[in-house]
């Protein structure tokens, strides 16, 4: 405990003494955290949207115009018995036309020129989230598609999977970039801490000669790196929040529409805490590397 107290006090004093050079390390860490934080902010919001879409998953079974009520009954019975559906709704041809006219008002005139109603009747099925994940929904869709009276089954999950895998690529690339920047930040911290170490050569020599434990000698330099990391990460989060607020103020409505009516959200507290901890770790590693190299 005394060691920790000593390390933090000396580390802070050293950071303050060399605040000019410490600024470089703090900026380097802040940049790395901003890159990682921005990436997390964007991907996290998109993931929320994907999760919502996934949990609201449904498929539509389009019926042939000549499908009998027995055939429709068989289709609905299969859906009900499958334990995949959370609920279902029958949409008649008339309902489908009404819905089209309501949702696509500019195109409503298109549907007036037909002699017959061109829209097929359908059964819309809401899927239980667990069934969507374990493949039971896919199996049901395949079975329903073979039943008599079924014209088509629409279960467009591919594009969701494509977005998810695209997101994984973006996240991986961003993570690699952030790691590279974190490495550069750690090297900057190590260089800055080494400067402070040179300035305290006499103290270190005395500490070694009086038999001070190695943790007491290295501790302040590790603490200095940790503090630089903490300050850098906090500044990065502050800037990230300001950027987020500016984007939300300027394009909040458009983004809301893009996010399917949901509002854009800042990173949750656990992510922020992780980013600060990450910054402190990068700083600590840099400080430790410098101290280990010199002592």
């Amino acid at each position: 405990m005394r060691m920790l107290d000593y390390a933090l006090r000396e580390g802070w004093a050293s950071l303050w003494r060399g605040r000019g050079s410490s600024a470089f390390a703090i900026v380097a860490i802040a940049l790395a955290i901003i890159v990682l934080g921005s990436l997390l902010l964007v991907t996290w919001n998109i993931e929320r949207l994907l999760a919502r879409w996934t949990s609201a998953a449904e498929f539509s079974v389009y019926l042939q115009d000549e499908a009998t009520s027995e055939q429709r009954g068989a289709i609905e019975a299969l859906i009900d018995d499958s334990r995949v559906a959370d609920g279902r709704e029958y949409v008649s041809k008339a309902d489908a036309l009404t819905r089209f006219r309501r949702e696509f008002t500019e195109l409503a005139s298109l549907a007036t020129g037909f002699e017959d109603n061109p829209f097929p009747a359908s059964v819309e099925v809401r899927i239980r989230p667990d069934a969507d994940n374990d493949g039971r929904a896919d199996a049901l869709v395949r079975r329903v598609a073979t039943l008599p009276g079924v014209a088509d089954v629409r279960y467009d999950r591919e594009w969701l999977a494509r977005i998810a895998s695209g997101l994984a690529v973006v996240r991986g690339t961003g993570l690699a970039l952030a790691l590279l920047m974190a490495l550069a930040a750690a090297v900057t911290v190590a260089s800055v801490v080494r400067l402070g170490l040179q300035a305290r050569r006499d103290e270190i020599e005395i500490m070694q000669l009086v038999g001070s434990p190695i943790a007491f000698i290295r501790g302040p330099f590790v603490a200095e790196g940790v503090l630089q990391g903490g300050v850098g990460a906090s500044i990065a989060l502050g800037l990230l929040w300001l950027g987020f607020a500016a984007v939300r103020a300027g394009w909040g409505v458009d983004l809301g529409a893009l996010l399917d009516g949901d509002s854009m959200q800042f990173l949750p507290a656990r992510f922020c805490a992780s980013l600060v901890a990450g910054g402190m770790t990068v700083g600590g590693v840099g400080g430790f590397a410098a101290a280990r190299h010199a002592v």
Binding site: R2, M3, Y6, V210, S212, P213, F216, I217
Partner: peptide, 11 residues
Amino acid sequence: SFVPQVLGVPP
């Protein structure tokens, strides 16, 4: 007092 300090003696 630097010496006892870095040897972990109580403040």
